[in-house]
């Protein structure tokens, strides 16, 4: 059984169980390991990808539901806000263990793509679904503000 969709801008057909979560389909079938497994229940955000531009948890998204739609993973980030987010992550030295950061960056990018000047409350609401056990939260917040400033100019 195969599912066709756009993956990081490329038409892709994956031959896999349509009930397989998108997380495992992009990782093990498409061979894109940047998206991480953290909880399997949409509780931690480590698996966040963009589906038609919106942040979704790929660990609970069956492969079949993305048929004909646009999926972007950390490997496919290309927008101006995305690049600003990634540059701010490095500049402010956000990552520690780094395992959750793909998901954090995907959520932060989706936020900035829909809201180019988020407040702290906006950041809380967009980012509270992404757990970081290293608790890099203060730097994530600062990096989102820095990225917002960078895309303004």
């Amino acid at each position: 059984m195969s599912t066709s969709f756009s993956l990081n801008g490329k038409s892709t057909t994956l031959d896999a169980d349509p009930n397989m979560p998108l997380l495992w389909a992009v990782r093990e079938v498409a061979g894109l390991p940047g998206t991480k497994f953290g909880c399997g229940m949409a509780l931690c955000g480590a698996c966040t990808v963009h589906l038609d531009g919106k942040a979704v948890r790929s660990c609970v998204t069956p492969l079949s539901t993305v048929a004909g739609r646009k999926v972007t993973t950390i490997e496919g980030l290309a927008s101006k806000p995305a690049k600003a987010v990634q540059a701010a992550w490095v500049k402010l030295q956000v990552p520690q263990c780094g395992y959750c950061q793909s998901g954090q960056i995907m959520s932060a990018t989706a936020l900035l793509e829909s809201n180019s000047a988020p407040t702290d409350a906006d950041i809380d609401s967009a980012m509270s679904g992404n757990i970081c056990r290293c608790a890099t939260y203060t730097r994530i917040r600062a990096a989102i503000h820095a990225a917002a400033d960078a895309i303004k100019v």
């Binding site: 950390i74 490095v90 030295q93 990552p95 780094g98």
Partner: peptide
């Protein structure tokens, strides 16, 4: 950090 870039691009 030597690992910041690789941990920011997946």
């Amino acid at each position: 950090r030597v690992d910041a870039s690789a941990k920011s691009d997946g």
